[in-house]
Structures are given as structure tokens and as C-alpha cells.
């Protein structure tokens, strides 16, 4: 089970960085590059900050700048979530 879905990502993105009326976030946009969707590096940072606020997951800065598509963000967030769950299990 994954922590964050594409729909969650869309919600955070629109809330923090806004949406154009052109409908780029309709349908399956997971594989499209953020730049094609009209989002710049600041929007990506705002997305990462929103993810941190909602899920408590911190993506390292260098990693954030390398995330070019929504699906890459989802993969990074969900693997970070799995890793931290793993760590929790090991320490408890």
C-alpha cells in the first residue's frame, strides 16, 4: 500500500503552487514532466514542503531538484515512508 497517491499529490500541488485552467492535471499526468505541466523549481520546492507538512517526510534538497515527474515524487515519498517504517520496526 502506498502512503501517497497521485490524487494526494495533485491536492498538495494545487493548494501550494496553484493550477492553470488548461487542465494539465486532469487525467493521468504521472509521467509528464513538471515543466510541461507548468510547474517550476519553486513549485517543486513548495510541493516538497507540503509533503513534509502533511506526511512528515523530508526529501533531501538535492533529491527534490532531481524529481522531474509526479511519479518520481510518488516513488520517492513512498520509498521514504517504507524506509522510515522499517527503521521504526527495527528500533522498537
Amino acid at each position: 500500500m502506498s502512503l501517497m497517491t497521485l490524487e494526494d499529490l495533485k491536492t498538495i500541488l494545487v493548494e501550494n503552487a496553484g493550477a492553470d485552467d488548461s487542465g494539465t492535471l486532469d487525467g493521468d499526468f504521472a509521467a509528464q514532466e513538471f515543466t510541461e505541466l507548468g510547474y517550476d523549481s519553486l513549485a517543486l520546492l513548495e510541493l516538497a514542503a507540503g509533503i513534509q507538512r502533511r506526511y512528515g517526510i523530508v526529501l533531501p534538497d538535492e533529491q527534490v531538484m532531481e524529481l522531474r515527474t509526479p511519479e518520481a515524487v510518488l516513488a520517492a515519498v513512498n520509498s521514504a515512508a517504507v524506509n522510515s517504517a522499517e527503521r521504526l520496526r527495527q528500533t522498537s
Binding site: 501550494n16 503552487a17 496553484g18 493550477a19 492553470d20 485552467d21 510547474y39 519553486l42 513549485a43
Partner: peptide
């Protein structure tokens, strides 16, 4: 204005 400009 475009929606992208509003949060900023």
C-alpha cells in the same frame, strides 16, 4: 490571472 500566479 492564471491560477499558477495566485499562490505567489
Amino acid at each position: 490571472l492564471p491560477g499558477r500566479l495566485l499562490p505567489q
